[in-house]
Amino acid sequence: MAYLQAESLRREFPPAVVALADATLEIELGESVAICGRSGSGKSTLLALLGLLDAPSGGSCRIDGVATEQLRRRQRAEFRRTHIGFVFQSFHLIPHLTATENVIVALDTRGTRRSQQRRRAVAELERVGLADRLNSLPVTMSGGEQQRVAIARAVATAPPILLCDEPTGNLDSTTAHDVLEILLTATTATAVVIVTHEEAVASRCDRTVWVNDGVLTETRAE
C-alpha cells in the first residue's frame, strides 16, 4: 500500500460547485509528484485535502495507513504536526520573527526539546545556505531567501510528506532553479507534492498529475 493513497477524493462547495471530482492518487515515500493545471482547475483544493487543511465531501485519503477523512478538526491538526510539511508560494513566514525563530516555531510545535530547537534550526538554515541570515527578519530578505527559510521550516521536523504550493511562483528563473534544487535534495526520503503550472518545475519531478476542472485527467510517468 502506498504511503499516501487518495481514492475517489471529492470536494464540493454549496450550492453545486464540484472543485474536485473522484481524484485517485498514490504517492510513495521518496517520490516527487508535480500537480499541474490551469488556474481554478482544482490544484489547490487537492493540495488542501492531501494536507488535511480541508475535509473531503467524499472518498478517502489514507496516509501511513490512517483514514484521514475520518479525523476530526483537532486530530487533523495533530496529524499535520507529525506527518506534513508545507511550502507556500508567498513563503508565509511570520513577519516579526527572525529566520531562526520561524524554523523554531515548527520545531516547538512538533515537540522538539527546547535545548535542541535552536541548534536544529540553525543546522537547517545552514543546509539551505542561509548561515549568514540567521537573525534576519523576513522583511529584510529577498524572495529566494524567504523561500529557503520556508523550506528549512518545512523540512526541519522531517515530515514524511511535503506539500508545496507554487514554491517558485514568486521567484525569478535563476532563484527558482536554486530553490527547487534545494527543495528536492533536502527531501530524499519524503513524498513531495509540488503544485505548479511551470513545465520546468514539473519536469524535475518523478511524475506529473494533471488536473482539469476538478478531474485528474492524466497521469504521466516521466
Binding site: 496529524f79 504536526r81 510539511g85 508565509h92 516555531v105 510545535t109
Partner: peptide, 11 residues
C-alpha cells in the same frame, strides 16, 4: 500568521 501556525499543526 495564525494560518501558518494552524497549518504546521499548532493546537
Amino acid at each position: 500568521e495564525i494560518g501558518i501556525r494552524r497549518a504546521i499543526g499548532t493546537r
